[in-house]
Design a protein around this nucleic acid. Structure first.
Length: 568
RNA sequence: GUGCCCUUAGCUCAGUUGGUUAGAGCAUCUGACUUUUAAUCAGAGGGUCCUGAGUUCGAAUCUCAGAGGGCACACCA
């Protein structure tokens, strides 16, 4: 036996649905609605008496007898509308106002409005309704945050779990959330325009890859039935984009979803968006110029300014950005010069700075730890950190002046890595050796084992022009541009454990036992029933309460006697 | 993975030392009101107190276990 559980308000809304149909009004009509105007435009370009037609959700209703004010929320915002009984219903029959508008419309319903623009006595731009149409019924009540006269929000819909699980509700009631996602879309549009203006080509490369390459990360694995082989969800698209440079394109870029089977926190989601771009005949110096120009342009187009607020920090995204070598960065914040130092000296420096080390860490890793622990967080204003140690960068060209370093930069903003770029390694023999080095490192127990992509090496052997490539984490960039501290706030649907849906209530064993006993007798003394059920006090109490709640049993008192009655 | 915190009505939240029938505002329902605006006024209904077990005469409250979530740390080139 099971029961669908609906709240009071949900039952009421299903009833109004039926009442509407009884009145000949279809709550889910098929016909298009000829929308010509949007809330924001009507308010921005006020024109007394203008005939308008708009549609959206009914978000508030203030009824005052024969007149009412309501608010409509469309895709651009909210606008107040005014209903007058005798104008909606010119004749004797006032049903449309008294019944349909006042009682059968619920907050959240989609309605269409035809009317004319005016200003109320209080000065608010409103639409005087001449005609309204129910476009779609809402069967679940929305949360209803309200803003008072001082701009304080009451009853805000803020619970992160509910907001992420029901993002559609979050978007309806939280205007600032919608704004974040509009900015996200604009960020990508802006970058796309910037690249296209240079003649670079937007491309698509495989997400399902037989060898997950281009980064060191644990991949997701899946299986292809027809080929009967494992496939990996990509962790990076780098190796495929470089093959396209080998193929003769001057510049290629891709907005890619990457997937990494690692921990989740406020900056990591298992799937995330990365933009990678590769341009032939360039080096990493050129790419720094290009990157800072791009960031500046995106900030202007998305935020209208290059001066942005991120948490407590004011950040200027105006180009040019500061450029600091990794050696100078570490020297500045620790006083230690890494140049020409041995592994033992580096390990000692780490320990002197309170960084835990283990024997598997080579020179590169030790330097990286020093930087990550002592320097990274200090770069609030955009800064290019350049010239990384060789062993941390297996796909990057050796530095033209120092073979222990690579021609690599990372862009730091607000103390975090935002972009990563190289003069790409195009010597196939060097590349093969570097892959083999990585294999050795990973054999030491690293579970992020790198496969050697033989086809990629073959491609390099045909020759790749000097190329610079850059990758930028879109989610993290959007977090900066929208001043959000959590990646979940910039993903429509962040990954979460599946929700336990409580749509049905089944009688449990105890309840069923009591119900079966009761059904035989129909009506019996409470103490007798309790005796026969043979349950502990608590179990009895919970079970009988549930049965009465479900309307299956009723407890009543006749004199001193407690009686239980079977109702169904 | 570890630590801390949270889970009560559709939403936001109170809930005392464990004690009557678990409260408030908004939302809902009934009624009044023709330019209001967090509209107002009068009345009514609405609960799996996250789940389970335990302690107790009695548990939203105490104990244990579990679920989901948040934050911090760790991990992650």
């Amino acid at each position: 036996m099971s029961f669908i559980e609906l709240s009071d308000q949900e039952i009421q809304r299903r009833e109004t649905l039926n009442k509407l149909r009884d009145l000949g009004i279809e709550p889910f009509p098929a016909a298009l609605y000829p929308v010509t105007d949007y809330s924001s435009d009507i308010k921005a370009q006020f024109e007394e008496g203008k005939q308008v037609c708009l549609a959206g959700r009914l978000m508030s209703q203030r009824v005052m007898g024969k007149a009412s004010f309501a608010e409509i929320l469309d895709s651009k915002g909210r606008i107040q509308v005014y209903f007058n009984r005798d104008e909606i219903c010119p004749g004797e029959d006032k049903t449309l106002y008294n019944e349909v508008f006042k009682k059968l419309l619920d907050l959240g319903d989609f309605i269409g409005i035809k009317g004319e623009v005016f200003k109320t006595q209080v000065g608010e731009t409103s639409v005087h309704v001449k005609e309204f149409t129910l476009l779609s019924k809402s069967l679940k009540p929305l949360p209803l945050p309200k803003t008072d006269a001082e701009g304080k929000v009451h009853d805000a819909f803020t619970d992160p779990e509910m907001r992420y699980r029901q993002r559609y509700v979050d978007l309806v009631v939280n205007a600032h959330v919608k704004e974040t996602f509009v900015k996200r879309s604009k960020t990508m549009q802006s970058m796309r325009n910037f690249f296209n203006a240079q003649g670079y080509l937007e491309v698509e490369t495989p997400i399902l890859q037989p060898i997950p390459g281009g980064a060191a990360a644990r991949p997701f694995i899946t299986h292809h039935n027809a080929l009967d082989m494992p496939l990996y969800l990509r962790i990076a698209n780098e190796l495929y984009l470089k093959r396209l440079i080998v193929g003769g394109f001057d510049g290629v870029y891709e907005f890619a979803k990457d997937f990494r089977n690692e921990g989740m926190d406020r900056t990591h989601n298992p799937e995330f968006t990365v933009m990678e771009i590769y341009v032939a005949y360039k080096d990493y110096h050129w790419m720094m110029d290009f990157t800072e120009k791009m960031i500046e342009t995106v900030a202007m187009e998305v935020c209208g300014t290059t001066e942005i607020q991120v948490g407590a920090n004011k950040i200027s995204l105006k180009a040019p950005f500061k450029r600091v070598t990794m050696r100078d960065a570490i020297l500045e914040f620790t006083g230690f010069d890494i140049h020409g130092k041995s592994e033992d000296e580096l390990r000692a420096a780490c320990q002197a700075n309170g960084i835990e080390t283990d024997p598997s860490m080579g020179k590169g890793k030790l330097i990286d730890e020093l930087f990550g622990e002592k320097c990274e967080g200090n770069y609030i204003q955009p800064t290019f950190i350049t010239d990384y140690p060789l062993e941390m960068s297996p796909l990057c060209k050796r530095h033209r002046e120092n073979p222990e370093l690579t021609e690599r930069f990372e862009l730091m903003i607000n103390g975090k890595e935002v972009a990563n770029a190289y003069s790409e390694l195009n010597d196939p023999i060097d590349q093969r050796e570097r892959f083999e080095e990585q294999m050795k490192l990973s054999e030491k127990g690293d579970d992020e084992a790198m496969f050697i992509d033989q086809d990629f090496l073959r491609a390099l052997e045909y020759g790749m022009p000097p190329t610079s490539g850059m990758g930028i984490g879109i989610d993290r960039l959007v977090m900066l541009l929208t001043n959000n501290a959590s990646i979940q706030e910039v993903l429509f649907f962040p990954q979460m454990r599946p929700e336990v849906m409580q749509t049905k209530v089944d009688l449990n064993e105890n309840e069923q036992t009591i119900y079966d006993l009761l059904k035989k007798e129909q009506k019996m003394e409470l103490l007798v029933l309790k005796e026969q059920a043979n349950l502990s006090n608590k179990q009895w109490d919970v079970s009988i309460k549930n049965l009465t709640k479900l309307g299956l049993a009723k407890v009543s008192k006749e004199g001193e006697l407690l009686l239980v009655e079977c109702l169904k």
